[in-house]
Simulated scan of single mutants.
Amino acid sequence: MHDAQRRLKAPAMSTVHPSAIVDPQAQLAPDVQVGPYAVIGPHVSIGASTTIGAHCVIEGHTTIGTDNRIWQFCSIGAAPQDKKYAGEPTRLEIGDRNTIREFCTFNCGTAQDSGVTRVGNDNWVMAYVHIAHDVQLGSQCILANNATLAGHVHVGDWVIIGGLTGVHQFVKIGAHAMAGFQTALSQDVPPFMMVDGNPAEVRGFNVEGLRRRGFGAERIAQVKQMHRLLYRKGLTLDESKASIAALQGGVDGGDEDLGLMLDFLAASKRGIVR
């Protein structure tokens, strides 16, 4: 066998900069890259093809999946900023193919909730984003610079959160929703809706996002009708829910969207932006 063939068949080797401090108990896949002056604690597990930037600190009981890129100066897995936290072995779980830019802070969960902060897959997280304890962030989300998710916030898939937006603790944001620049969210945002302002108001629904995700014209029209029933017809919330439920069976593939909305409205505890 030629030397070139041997090199092609050789397993990928992790690259840990000599100045980085990696605890011997940490579990790193063979091809993980760790930049200068990074610190990785004993209870950390990092999956294949993930890159850790310079000066990152990854601690706590933290699991990071494959193909993530964590840029320099991030704090990942630190203790929650919660006075009730008493050192319990709570966790942070990050999925696959996430981009996490500079100066982000992701905290572990608390014993008062599920004990786990979760970040899904394929998220684009820009600089200075804070993900607090017990946050449940879905997949395919975009969080712009300085977006802040307080404790216990739940965010569905395909959500976009604008820069400098603050989300109050326990707020839920439904799938495909969008929050504009500097929005202050203290109530739940139903799926598909677009909100902005302080206090936040619904400005429409995320029609362009749905088009980009392959929603057909009929499904988009049905989402538009849900928006009208919730925000343009002057109905009570109970009347709106009944009218949305009555749309079932009208659009091919649309019942999934109706179910998403109805389940979200039924589970809302803080009330919706309205």
Results as ranks from 00 to 15, higher is better:
Arg213Lys: 10
Asn68Gln: 14
Arg274Ser: 13
Lys84Met: 07
Lys172Val: 03
Arg213His: 06
Lys241Ile: 02
Asn146Ala: 13
Met178Thr: 06
Gln25Ile: 08
Ala38Tyr: 02
Glu218Trp: 00
Val189Ala: 12
Gln169Leu: 10
Arg7Phe: 14
Ala12Val: 07
Asn121His: 09
Leu185Tyr: 12
Val195Glu: 13
Val171Pro: 07
Glu59Trp: 00
Phe192Leu: 12
Tyr128Leu: 04
Phe170Gln: 08
Gly120Val: 07
Gln5Val: 10
Gly253Phe: 12
Gly249Asp: 05
Tyr37Gln: 12
Thr236Ser: 14
Asn206Lys: 04
Pro199Tyr: 08
Gly47His: 07
Gly166Tyr: 06
Gly234Asp: 09
Gly209Thr: 02
Val125Met: 14
Ala221Cys: 05
Phe215Lys: 00
Gly138Pro: 00
Lys83Ala: 09
Met126Lys: 06
Gln182Glu: 15
Val171Glu: 10
Asn206Phe: 04
Ala127Thr: 03
Thr99Asn: 14
Thr50Leu: 08
Ile244Gly: 02
Trp158Ser: 00
Asp263Glu: 15
Asp3Cys: 06
Asp67Trp: 15
Asp67Cys: 11
Asp257Ala: 11
Ser186Phe: 15
Val159Tyr: 11
Phe205Trp: 13
Gly151His: 06
Pro191His: 08
Ile21Gly: 14
Asn68Val: 03
Glu102Pro: 08
Lys172Asn: 10
Ser45Gln: 08
His17Asp: 14
Lys269Ile: 01
Ile244Lys: 01
Gln33Leu: 06
Phe106Leu: 15
Arg219Gln: 15
Glu88Lys: 00
Thr66Asn: 13
Val153Met: 01
Met226Gln: 13
Pro191Asn: 12
Ile58His: 01
